[in-house]
């Protein structure tokens, strides 16, 4: 399965997608809260800043190395 630039249960990554800091460096409680109102900005595998396109019903995040993922925000 291809790696996605955002965290998933099978591939949590090394970096926090919200703040770009190491995922195991302290708590990311604010980041978890923020994730409800923000798409991720950092690739969780390589810490590159992703390009993120937000549309009314989805967001698409792209890391040049780890590819693209689209997530619908309403069904």
């Amino acid at each position: 399965m291809a790696v996605e630039p955002v965290a998933s249960p099978s591939s949590p990554g090394t970096w926090c997608g919200q703040c770009g800091e190491a995922a195991d460096s302290g708590a990311h409680i604010r980041c978890a809260l923020r994730a409800e109102l923000e798409p991720p900005r950092w690739c969780v595998h390589c810490r590159r800043r992703m390009t993120v396109q937000v549309t009314p019903g989805a967001w698409t995040a792209t890391c040049v190395r780890h590819g693209s993922v689209e997530q619908a925000t309403w069904s």
């Binding site: 409800e36 109102l37 923000e38 798409p39 993120v52 937000v54 549309t55 009314p56 019903g57 989805a58 967001w59 925000t73 309403w74």
Partner: peptide
């Protein structure tokens, strides 16, 4: 309704 330019909004429903 829906998302903003760079941030997310509520579910329109």
């Amino acid at each position: 309704v829906g998302n903003y330019l760079t941030t997310l909004g509520r579910d329109p429903r």
